[in-house]
Design a protein around this nucleic acid. Structure first.
Length: 563
RNA sequence: UGGGAGAUGGUCUAAUGGCAAGACAGCGGACUCUGACUCCGCUUAUCGGGGUUCGAAUCCCUGUCUCCCAGCCA
């Protein structure tokens, strides 16, 4: 596993600048970061940015990055998600080593900190209902009002809080609140809730607790307990920072991590929100969290994206404080870039059209040599069977083709990749006028693809030998949404913008026989088509299923589309 | 409306008082046994207005716009 970021002259982002400064001034000797997911869903591409940042920054500074599950809300969390998250972080290429933590492991310590706060007169048990509390909180212009329970004695609060823990109160009857400032312009400082009663069994602590700490109380203290130096989170937590600092300052903790906020990743033509992804899964609008159209890490993995390409993508988009929308094309470019250099090439016909080489001997077969990678000889060669009956791509033939169409048409000559030059002599149609077969002649002198007379042939097309080809199902994916910003309008549900053509299943594709040995971890370029991999869930030796990871750039389609 | 944050080509990112740079997209061309890759060229930007300065994307003032916050979610 090599996830080391090569040392370059690339300027440091603002977070790395802060950290470099902290090291230079000896504020910290060692850097410790953390990636703190809540196990209430699968990780997506947005998390990848955070993972790469946190693990990357730690590695660059010979520090440590913890994986900590922020599991303080048992209503939504499960071990299934914990396992999926661990798998995905590992897959992305990062290793937390022994530093696997759970906020739930701190519940006892957290409880003691809460007691300490009460003893300091900085927290109280409040019996206001949720509705009342909202009213008391005030609004944007008006300060909040003090809760009538705010001045309970320390002894009473201690007593009440213990009763809360012992399950003597029903859910919703009371909470523990910090005593800060009901007039603060920052709502989070208007006596925020620290603990609530939830009589829900927790996936790790079972029924040991019936009160659970809130995020703002848990996160800073968890960071502190783990000696985190830099607590990196997204912009929406900027308002939470004063509270983060208040808890640690008030408790006078020996360690006070610095929270730094950065802009979350947004990508157009998709949604990156666990809630919305969950909705797609629960409504069966996709096949699951790992549907190859989803930008979850498991979806990207199944789609065929490499961890390296996702890391390169995350590095490329940078880290800043300005909210931005990354074009989906940048992600696609990252995987193309990787696969262009690393994926062996093969021939595969997605929409087969039969070709008979009329002057080729019947019942004869030969094998032709093909390069696995035209720019990289080290990837070696392979043999391709050739015979009288072939399949070519239907879109590589056109009747009454324009001059710029460098492919097959009646009377025109093209090269079959690594094979022969052929000329189309006759077009066979069915009763509906549909082209069903082509009769061609080949130039026996052009074996390998070059004519001895040196004549130039502009077009080269891919093919497979009919009798030797493998039949396969191929799934073509397109962006999941038709709108660039599917969740932009709060009035219109994002699901209205699902792309009906985001999945196209081709059932009669014909692939070169070498693909029979392909394994789920292999990725190939089907020449002139795109990059493909075996579908890890549905493919079998009896029924091959390939996913299209991404298309090749297609300047012909662009040209043709203009007309 | 109170508070917090942010505005650089179509999109993202850099320049940290000294020639506004790079990536992606787009356009044009070269090359090509993948209309791929690669290579070359081009178009396009400092939110507005004032100020400080020899010099401002950067510092100051002011205006505008966008995002976040009124969960017993994280």
């Amino acid at each position: 596993m090599n996830t080391e970021t090569p040392k370059t002259d690339k300027p440091l982002d603002f977070i790395r600048q802060i950290i470099a400064e902290d090291i230079a001034t000896k504020k910290h000797e060692e850097i410790t970061t953390r990636f703190p997911p809540e196990p209430n869903g699968f990780l997506h591409i947005g998390h990848a940015k955070s993972i790469c940042l946190n693990f990357g920054v730690a590695a660059e500074n010979n520090g440590t990055c913890h994986l900590r599950f922020d599991d303080t809300n048992p209503d939504k969390e499960s071990t299934e998600y914990v396992e999926a998250i661990k798998r995905d972080v590992h897959w992305l290429g990062y290793d937390w080593g022994e530093h696997l933590y759970y906020a739930s492991d701190y519940f006892t310590q957290l409880y003691n900190f809460a007691v300490k706060l009460i003893e300091m007169g900085k927290a109280y048990v409040c019996h206001l209902s949720g509705e009342e509390m909202r009213t008391y909180r005030g609004n944007l212009t008006e300060p909040g009002k003090k809760s009538p329970y705010r001045d309970r004695s320390i002894a009473e609060n201690l007593q009440l809080f213990e009763q809360m823990r012992n399950g003597e109160f029903d859910e919703g009857t009371c909470v523990l609140r910090a005593k800060i400032d009901m007039a603060s312009p920052n709502f989070l400082m208007r006596d925020p809730v620290l603990y609530r009663i939830m009589k829900t069994s927790h996936h790790r602590t079972g029924d040991k607790w019936c009160i659970y700490p809130m995020y703002d109380f848990t996160h800073c203290l968890s960071d502190m307990l783990e000696n985190i130096t830099h607590s990196l989170c997204t912009l929406e937590f900027e308002n939470n920072r004063p509270l983060y600092d208040w808890v640690l300052d008030t408790l006078q903790t020996p360690c006070h991590p610095q929270q730094i906020e950065f802009a979350r990743l947004n990508i157009n033509y998709t949604v990156t929100s666990k809630r919305k992804l969950l909705e797609l899964v629960e409504d069966s609008l996709v096949s699951g969290w790992d549907d190859p159209r989803m930008l979850t890490l498991s979806g990207l993995r199944r789609r065929g994206y490499t961890p390296a390409s996702i890391r390169a993508f995350c590095e490329g988009i940078g880290v800043g404080k300005r909210e931005s929308w990354i074009d989906m094309g940048i992600l696609e470019n990252a995987i193309r870039d990787d696969l262009n250099t690393n994926a062996p090439r093969v021939l595969g016909v997605l929409d087969p059209l039969k070709v008979v080489i009329t002057n080729y001997p019947e019942d004869s077969t030969e094998t032709l040599e093909a390069l696995n990678h035209p720019q990289n000889n080290q990837m070696g060669k392979r043999m391709l069977p050739f015979s009288r009956e072939l399949f070519i791509e239907r879109s590589d033939f056109m009747e009454n083709a324009p001059k710029k169409f460098f492919r097959l048409s009646e009377g025109r000559e093209v090269r079959l990749r690594y094979a022969y030059l052929i000329t189309c002599a006759k077009v066979i149609k069915d009763e509906n006028g549909e082209v069903v077969e082509l009769h061609c002649t080949y130039d026996p002198e052009s074996r390998g693809g070059n004519a001895p007379d040196g004549r130039k042939v502009k077009g080269t097309i891919h093919w497979v030998s009919a009798a030797h080809s493998l039949q396969a199902e191929v799934r073509l994916y397109d962006r999941l949404f038709t709108e660039e910003f599917p969740d932009a309008d709060k009035e219109i549900p994002f699901k209205n913008f699902l792309n009906p053509d985001s999945l196209q299943v081709l059932t009669d594709c014909r692939l070169e026989p070498n693909l029979a040995n392909a394994s789920a971890s292999d990725r190939f370029q089907f020449e002139r088509q795109g990059y493909f991999c075996i579908d890890s869930e549905d493919s079998s030796a009896q029924h091959l299923v390939f996913n299209r990871i991404v298309t090749l750039r297609d300047s012909w389609a662009k040209l043709a589309g203009k007309k």
